[in-house]
């Protein structure tokens, strides 16, 4: 990651107005569906797909970071503080954004294999996002 950053900032300009953009969330906050396999707190470089029409009551968080570093108390009451899916739908209804992606991507930002995360996980997620109908991505880390 440092290599890339030293060379250049990977800046991609938007091709349409915000009011026409379909937005997806890509988050490393450890969010997943209750029915999905939880992330391993020992370190995890896999990811989960979150449907755009998810009921937030079906979401939970599993993360390896200590609670005193990453406070989950607010997000457990209201997932929007780290994964603002309901707020995105409201912005779409107001016409501020064009739409909410049918799929969102969730990872857990605690991995002991950072090289693998950088070389394999992140490019694989980026490829999936690029192949979707998403125009722009909101990144959150918790």
């Amino acid at each position: 990651m440092a290599d890339l950053s030293r060379r250049c900032v990977p800046f991609t300009p938007p091709t349409r107005k915000l009011s026409e953009m379909t937005i997806a969330i890509v988050s490393t906050a450890g969010v997943h569906l209750k029915e999905q396999e939880p992330f391993s707190k020992e370190g995890d470089d896999t990811w989960r797909h979150i449907p755009g029409d998810v009921n937030v009551a079906d979401l939970m968080i599993t993360h390896g970071a200590p609670e005193e570093h990453y406070d989950r108390t607010q997000a457990k009451q209201d997932i929007n503080v780290i994964f603002p899916i309901e707020r995105l739908h409201e912005l779409a209804a107001q016409g501020v954004i064009g739409g909410v992606s049918e799929r969102h991507w969730s990872l857990m930002g605690y991995s002991l294999r950072l090289q693998k995360y950088y070389n394999e996980t992140a490019p694989a997620v980026a490829k999936e996002v690029e192949r979707s109908s998403v125009d722009a991505v909101l990144l959150t880390a918790g």
Partner: peptide, 25 residues
């Protein structure tokens, strides 16, 4: 950390942060 868009139930704050983030485009 853990409060990227603010706190639970504070929709106005969450929306303000989200709108500001998306305006960066």
């Amino acid at each position: 950390w853990g409060h990227s868009l603010g706190t639970a139930g504070n929709k106005d704050l969450q929306m303000a942060v989200l709108r500001t983030a998306l305006r960066q485009f």
